[in-house]
Amino acid sequence: MSKVPMTVSGERSLREELERLRRVDRPRITQAIAEAREHGDLKENAEYHAAREQQSFAEGRIQNIESKLSNAQVIDVTTIPRTGKVIFGTTVELVNVDTDATVTYRIVGDDEADVKNNLISVSSPIARALIGKEEGDVVVVKAPSGNIEYEISQVQHI
């Protein structure tokens, strides 16, 4: 399987979630299952079935995170020489050519993407249009509503 790019902060948050699932959630769920078993008949025990469902979800998430971390290629953008080009992990300030509205995005891995927090996936149309470009370049992003032109006003390696 090929490596998937991930930022240092993305890896850290996945490791923290994995640790919480293993050390906090897993024991809590195991305790809830044990308590539910004490109530008797398991066929009609809603608490037992709910706890088993939580256990299934938590174990699935643990496996999912372990898989992601094993296939991750962690990229620390602060160690890459600054060229002024847009690369994975950089923060880019864009100006809409038509409206003069500015927006700032950080290009991150697929699992880290959160548009509400201006974190866009490296595989998104905007990021694909930006990668390799420099400050001052104008890029055309193919959006569902039509093509949008952005000028790259600033590239930061944070």
Rank of each mutant, 00 (worst) to 15 (best):
P125K: 02
P81S: 04
G10D: 13
D98F: 03
E19S: 13
I87K: 08
H157C: 10
R37A: 08
S2L: 15
S56Q: 14
M6G: 06
S124H: 11
V97I: 04
G10R: 14
R106Q: 15
Y48R: 03
I148Y: 00
S9N: 15
S56Y: 11
L130R: 05
T79N: 09
T78V: 07
E93T: 15
V24G: 06
R128V: 14
E47F: 14
D110G: 12
N147G: 10
L69E: 07
E134N: 09
S145I: 09
A50M: 05
A72E: 01
D98G: 03
V140K: 09
P125A: 08
V4E: 15
V138H: 04
R12F: 10
R128W: 08
L42E: 08
G10W: 15
A50H: 06
N71Q: 15
P144N: 12
A113C: 07
Y48A: 02
S124N: 09
E151C: 07
R15G: 08
D114C: 08
G132K: 03
A51R: 06
T102G: 10
E11H: 01
Q55A: 02
T83A: 05
N45H: 07
D114R: 14
R28K: 10
V138A: 05
R37T: 09
V103Q: 12
A143Y: 09
M6S: 04
N45W: 05
A51C: 04
Y48S: 00
T104K: 13
N64Q: 13
I33S: 02
N118W: 05
L14S: 11
E66F: 05
K133D: 00
I107N: 02
E19T: 11
R23F: 06
Q55S: 02
I148S: 01
R28P: 00
F88N: 01
H39Y: 09
L69R: 08
G132W: 04
T102L: 07
P27C: 08
I131K: 00
V115T: 14
G136R: 08
I80F: 07
H49Q: 14
R23K: 15
N96Y: 02
R28G: 04
I80P: 03
K43I: 10
K116C: 07
